[in-house]
């Protein structure tokens, strides 16, 4: 994939293309995998998600490693981003709860009412769209 940008404009174009490629039905599972997430067992949760997503043939689900969400006290943390539902951030996710997230939230399209942490923060880049 070694693509070398030959001038600054190519980078802008590339960024646009990446954004366009995003389809609406992608469901993202963001798992906080900084050092402290991993220490609290996020790597196991990540594996469970990967395995289960494959087993269930959920093609539009992306299981994604992300950095620290800041909530070290409730690790492992998982944020679910999908169409028609608000972004939800779950804390204290263990292997069992991970499966419930898949079954009830992702497949059942219903927000689970346990272990919801704060609403994810306002994004500095969303401001542009608001304007």
């Amino acid at each position: 994939m070694a693509k070398k940008f030959k001038n600054p404009d190519e980078l802008f174009k590339f960024a646009d293309e990446l954004t366009k490629k995003d389809s609406d039905d992608i469901i993202e599972l963001r798992i906080g995998m900084g050092t402290c997430g991993i220490a609290a067992g996020a790597d196991k949760v990540y594996e469970v998600f990967q395995k289960e997503v494959e087993k269930r043939g959920l093609k539009n689900v992306v299981v994604k490693k992300v950095g620290c969400l800041g909530l070290c006290f409730s690790e492992p943390n998982v944020e679910v981003v999908m169409k028609d539902l608000p972004n939800v951030l779950y804390g204290y996710v263990d292997e069992k709860f991970a499966i419930r997230i898949l079954e009830e939230h992702v497949e059942g399209k219903k927000v689970l009412h346990e272990n919801i942490l704060d609403k994810p923060y306002q994004d500095i880049y969303e401001e542009e769209e608001v304007k």
Partner: peptide, 19 residues
């Protein structure tokens, strides 16, 4: 600090963290 203060007190055995 091993960066898991949220789990304090913490020990590490090789690379495994116990909090």
């Amino acid at each position: 600090c091993v960066g898991c203060c949220g789990l304090a007190p913490v020990i590490m055995i090789n690379n495994d963290v116990y909090g």
